[in-house]
C-alpha cells in the first residue's frame, strides 16, 4: 500500500515482537501522575453525578421559570437554589450540566464503541485476507482520512434530517478508519506469528483464528486508540449540537447548551463557562489518560 506521508506512518513496523503479557505486567497504575489521578477522580464524580442527576433533588433540567431567567451563580449574586445560575429560559444550569454529561459522554462512548468494533473488524479482515478486499477497505480509509468528517456529516444531516439515529450512525462512522488502519497493521504482523500459522495448519477456521489468536494479541493498542478517539467524538457531537444539528432540544447536551449560550455571551457569561469548562475538563483528562496509557503500554502508537 502506498503511504501518503501527510498522514500517520504505518504503526506496527518497528514494534518489537514482545509478548503482550510482559507488557501488561509493566503497566503499573501507581505510575500515574498525581494530577492525572486527580483528573480521574473529578471525572468519576462528574459521571456519577450525571447518572444520579434525576435523584439528586435538583430542579428538572427542562423546567422553565421565566421569572428566574439568567440568574448568576453563587459568589456572583446567586442563591443556593440555583448554584450554577440559570439560562435564558430560567432552567437550572447545574441540573442541565449533569443531564448534559449523561447525554454527551454517553453518545461519545456509544460512538467510540461502534467505530472500534466496526473499524477493528474491517482492519482485521483487510490485514488477514489481503488481496482485493484489503485494497477496497484501504481505499475507503484513505478517502475518509482525506475529507474532513464534518463535511460528510453535513451532507448526511441535510439529506436525512437531524435526529438521534442519524447522529449515532455519524458518530459511529467517524473515526472507524483509524482503528481499521491500526488493526490491519497489527494483524499483518500477528498473522505471520508461529502460533497463528500452527492454528491454521491444524485446520482452524478464519473466524476462530481471528477471534482466538489474533484479536487477543492486538486488543491493547486498539483500546488505547479508543481512549484517544473519545475526545474527537465528544467534540464532533458537541460541535454539531452547538450548530443546532446534533442533539435536539429539549434534551440537553453540552454542545447545544453552548449553542444557546452563544446568544447570551454578553448578558450571562456563566451559561457559557459552565458547559465550556466541563468539556475542557473531560477533554484534558481523557487526552492525558490516552497519552499516559500509550506511553505505558506501547510507545509506538502515535497521536495524530
Amino acid at each position: 500500500m502506498a503511504q501518503s506521508l501527510t498522514r500517520r506512518r504505518p504503526v506496527a513496523r518497528e514494534r518489537p515482537a514482545t509478548p503482550l503479557v510482559a507488557q501488561r505486567q509493566r503497566t503499573r497504575w501507581s505510575t500515574a501522575p498525581v494530577l492525572l489521578i486527580l483528573g480521574w477522580a473529578l471525572l468519576a464524580v462528574l459521571v456519577a453525578l450525571g447518572v444520579a442527576q434525576p435523584w439528586l433533588g435538583l430542579a428538572e433540567p427542562g423546567a422553565q421559570h421565566l421569572t428566574e431567567r439568567l440568574q448568576p451563580p453563587i459568589g456572583f449574586g446567586g442563591t443556593w437554589e440555583h448554584p450554577f445560575g440559570t439560562d435564558q429560559l430560567g432552567r437550572d444550569l447545574l441540573s442541565r450540566l449533569l443531564a448534559g454529561a449523561r447525554v454527551s459522554l454517553g453518545l461519545a462512548t456509544l460512538g467510540v464503541t461502534i467505530s472500534l468494533v466496526v473499524g477493528s473488524m474491517l482492519g482485521l479482515l483487510a490485514g488477514f485476507r489481503r488481496g482485493v478486499l484489503d485494497h477496497a477497505i484501504m481505499f475507503i480509509v484513505d478517502v475518509q482520512l482525506s475529507i474532513p468528517f464534518l463535511a460528510i456529516a453535513l451532507v448526511a444531516l441535510t439529506l436525512f434530517g437531524t435526529g438521534l439515529p442519524v447522529l449515532i450512525v455519524l458518530l459511529g462512522l467517524s473515526g472507524w478508519e483509524q482503528y481499521a488502519r491500526l488493526a490491519r497493521a497489527l494483524s499483518l504482523r500477528t498473522s505471520q506469528e508461529l502460533y497463528v500459522i500452527a492454528a491454521r495448519s491444524l485446520g482452524a477456521s478464519t473466524a476462530r483464528v481471528l477471534s482466538r489468536h489474533v484479536l487477543p494479541n492486538i486488543v491493547a493498542p486498539l483500546l488505547v486508540l479508543a481512549t484517544l478517539q473519545f475526545t474527537s467524538l465528544l467534540l464532533l457531537e458537541s460541535s454539531l449540537s452547538f450548530l443546532g444539528l446534533g442533539v435536539q432540544p429539549p434534551t440537553p447536551s453540552w454542545g447545544n447548551m453552548l449553542g444557546d449560550a452563544r446568544n447570551y455571551l454578553q448578558l450571562a457569561w456563566w451559561t457559557t463557562v459552565a458547559p465550556g469548562l466541563a468539556l475542557l475538563l473531560v477533554t484534558l483528562v481523557v487526552n492525558a489518560t490516552g497519552d499516559w496509557l500509550r506511553d505505558v503500554t506501547d510507545p509506538v502508537l502515535r497521536r495524530r
Binding site: 458537541s238 452547538f242 453552548l258 449560550a261 455571551l265 457559557t272 475542557l280 487526552n287
Partner: peptide, 14 residues
Amino acid sequence: QGLPNFVLGLFLIL
C-alpha cells in the same frame, strides 16, 4: 492541542 476550538473561541470572546 486538546482544547475544543469553539470553547476556546467562546472563552476568548468573553
